[in-house]
Every structure is written in C-alpha cells, then in structure tokens.
C-alpha cells in the first residue's frame, strides 16, 4: 500500500498516525507540507529514521524545492521522486491511503 502525508508534522498528527498504522513493506510518500517531515536534525527525524527500517520513504522533489529544502538536508535513506515517480508509486501499489 502507498501512504501519502500532505500535512506538516508540527501542525497535524497525520504523519504520526500514518507511521503507527503503516505495515512493514509499505511505501510512504511525503508531499506538500508533508515534506517538512523529511528534514534531518528535527524533532521528527528519529521517527522517520526508525520507519525507514520497515518502509520505503519518498519525498516529492518539486515540493521540497518550493520550500527551499535541498536533498542533503533530508533524513538519510529518504528517496526524492518527481511527479512521474508519484504516478509510478500510485499505480505500482494496489491502493493509496491519503492521510489528510
């Protein structure tokens, strides 16, 4: 299953709820303000790093770029994808759970 999170983890419990319910082997794509959850050295970095042990975590490149976050600032192991990668994740999984 593909999980998407589009809210800042500082402003919403979406990321926390997602991480608590996403099963091992799932994909997680951070989009819109959700990409703030990918920043290293933040209060959320440890939970993302832990999630990377069982999930593949992606962040949408254009949304990172808009917010001035370069790839070297991300928690190690997060993969950056473009809109084409978003489509591949959505079609490659049997379903999509959007944590709004």
């Amino acid at each position: 299953m593909l999980h998407t999170v589009n809210k800042s983890p500082y402003d919403s419990s979406s990321l926390r709820t997602c991480l608590s319910l996403a099963k091992s082997g799932s994909d997680l794509l951070l989009i819109e303000d959700g990409v703030y959850g990918a920043l290293s050295g933040s209060v959320h970095s440890d939970s993302i790093a832990e999630a990377l042990n069982s999930l593949k975590v992606y962040a949408l490149g254009p949304d990172l770029k808009a917010r001035g976050i370069s790839e070297d600032r991300l928690v190690s192991g997060i993969q950056v994808v473009g809109y084409d990668g978003f489509v591949e994740l959505a079609t490659g999984n049997d379903k999509v759970q959007s944590w709004l």
Binding site: S8, D33, Y36, P62, A66, G68, S70
Partner: peptide, 23 residues
C-alpha cells in the same frame, strides 16, 4: 513561530511545482 519560520527559509524555488514563489 512554529511552522511560520519556514516562510523565511532561503532558497525557495517553485519553478517545478507551478506555484507562485512569494518569498
């Protein structure tokens, strides 16, 4: 305060996301 600090982040570039870069 809070996520408001992200408004002042350097290097915002919306060219790929089709939004207005107001920074």
């Amino acid at each position: 305060i809070g996520d408001g600090v992200f408004q002042l982040k350097q290097g915002q570039d919306t060219v790929d996301s089709d939004m207005k870069n107001f920074s």
